[in-house]
């Protein structure tokens, strides 16, 4: 139990860094960076916890990004700032970048070395995983405006 808590804290610590780093690339205003840090740490560590208890990665991503969507809703109404400012940077640590690149590189390899089942398996598995995780992420974030606001502006 203590060990799990330690792993969780470690995960949260390493997750806030990319959230803030990418938020700075998107030029999020300085006083909002702290919210991106909190969001990044919360989402990535709670996904870690869900996956630890055996939830598949896509569903875990969906659950935590939906929660992030509602948290972003609260923050955006509090500060009168559009939601993507907090939410997108917070989920950046969960973007399946490595899967996406593996799929693409395997595609390029099929072109150079010819078709093989192993390479095609890499393309399909990594490509599909990218697609599903990404859809889960965006759908989760969009949930408040799809279910509750339905076309009305949030701020």
């Amino acid at each position: 139990m203590i060990e799990l808590l330690y792993l969780l804290l470690q995960d949260a610590w390493f997750a806030w860094i990319p959230a803030v780093g990418f938020a700075m690339v998107f030029n999020v205003p300085s006083r909002m960076l702290i919210y991106c840090a909190i969001g990044g740490a919360l989402t990535h560590s709670s996904r870690f916890l869900l996956m630890h208890y055996g939830v598949p990665i896509e569903w875990a991503t969906f659950i935590v990004s939906a929660n992030m969507g509602f948290l972003g809703l609260y923050w955006s109404r509090k500060h009168l700032i559009p939601r993507p400012v907090f939410t997108v940077a917070s989920v950046i640590p969960m973007i399946p970048g490595s899967y996406a690149f593996t799929a693409m590189i395997a595609l390029v390899e099929i072109n150079t070395t010819g078709y093989s089942l192993a390479l095609m398996q890499l393309v399909m598995e990594n490509g599909l995983r990218t697609l599903f995780i990404l859809t889960a992420l965006s759908f989760g974030l969009a949930l408040p405006s799809i279910l509750i606001y339905r076309g009305r502006p949030i701020v």
Binding site: V88, G97, F101, L134, T135, F139, A142
Partner: peptide, 23 residues
Amino acid sequence: MAASVLLLVPGFPLINSVSDMLK
């Protein structure tokens, strides 16, 4: 090798893309 190129993931366009299509 895998981690060092992750700064080049177009995360924002991808998320915007899916949420545009959803809406």
